[in-house]
Write a protein that binds this DNA or RNA. Structure first.
Length: 292
DNA sequence: CGATTCCCCTGATAGC
DNA sequence: TGCTATCAGGGGAATC
């Protein structure tokens, strides 16, 4: 499930491989992934012969800035991940070279861009939830997709007082607020659970009940866990893989997410899983008390 | 305007 | 064995 660290890893790995490259061809067996423009032929026509001038992350979105005043936006959602390599097309399907790209999770190719050096940029997406949009760069900047995003938690300007201010301006349960992309951009289910465990805060704790000390711990731990995950190229307990098809190595630092029934590494209590707003939520019932 | 619900999709898993 | 029902889940749209 790509969140900020996984999307950042994708951008960092792709960057040297795609900068200054030109799109020469597009293949898809799932045209519904392409939301903009609506017509696939129009999408193909517009993206062909455009050069990748820049690639960057905005929240969980990947944006390729192209020549001709265009920008390609890709959101990987739950199971999407971008891969780079050289596949061959045989009998209606893509054959991956041996190595990580041929591994199971990388087989669900639904969109393949061929670049001018023969390399391919491919979107593997088991559940086909990803979205691909081609925008005029100026329009994208003013779009609600971009404008409604909250600040990036790793930006230099994102200091504690800014964090405190935006969190306290919201109401509700802390985990839900952390996952709200209009509040802070980039945190999802995994890293909200992990940051809250590190900060010893119960995911259901109401914003209004948070103490100054807890806010400070949370601020610090959000940034630390995200940085650590980027350093390790993200987590791959589920579908995510880096663009070369390899697993991220954050797993050994994962303390609660998908660890229901295991012992808390800090206090030994049994990790619990519940639902919050339709999302599974993991926490330690002993070190993350609701009332403290 | 905010809060909630539905929907997109398919592999894995449980139940019969 | 093989079928069917359920679940997971980001975010956008529709609805309350």
């Amino acid at each position: 499930m790509p969140e900020l660290p996984e999307v950042e890893t994708t951008v960092r790995v792709l960057k040297p491989k795609v900068l200054k490259r030109t799109f020469v061809d597009v293949w898809t067996d799932a045209p519904k992934l392409i939301k903009k423009p609506e017509s696939l032929s129009e999408f193909k026509k517009r993206i062909k012969n455009k050069k990748i001038k820049e690639i960057y992350r905005k929240g969980k979105n990947i944006i390729f800035e192209l020549s001709g005043g265009l920008s390609l936006l890709i959101h990987q959602k739950l199971t999407g991940h971008l891969l780079i390599g050289k596949w061959t097309f045989k009998n209606g399907k893509w054959i991956a070279p041996s190595g990580p790209l041929s591994e199971k999770m990388n087989r669900f190719l639904h969109l393949v861009f061929t670049l001018d050096n023969g390399q391919m940029l491919a979107l593997s997406d088991l559940r086909k939830f990803a979205k691909v949009e081609l925008w005029k760069t100026e329009k994208l900047k003013n779009s609600s997709t971009i404008k409604n995003l909250g600040p990036d938690p790793l930006e230099k300007t994102f200091n504690f007082s800014k964090f405190k201010k935006i969190i306290l301006s919201k109401k509700g349960k802390i985990k839900q607020v952390l996952m709200d992309q209009t509040v802070i951009a980039g945190i999802g289910n995994i890293y909200s659970d992990e940051a809250l465990w590190r900060a010893k805060i119960h995911p259901f704790k109401d914003i209004s009940k948070l103490k100054e000390k807890e806010l400070k711990e949370l601020y610090k731990n959000i940034r630390e866990v995200l940085k650590k995950a980027i350093e390790l190229q993200g987590e791959s307990i589920s579908d995510y893989r880096t663009p070369t098809g390899k697993k991220g190595r954050f797993d050994r630092f994962r303390k609660v997410y998908r660890r229901e029934g295991e012992k808390c590494s800090r206090c030994g209590a049994t990790i619990k899983r519940t639902k919050l707003g339709g999302r599974s939520t993991h926490f330690c019932p002993r070190c993350q008390l609701l009332t403290r």
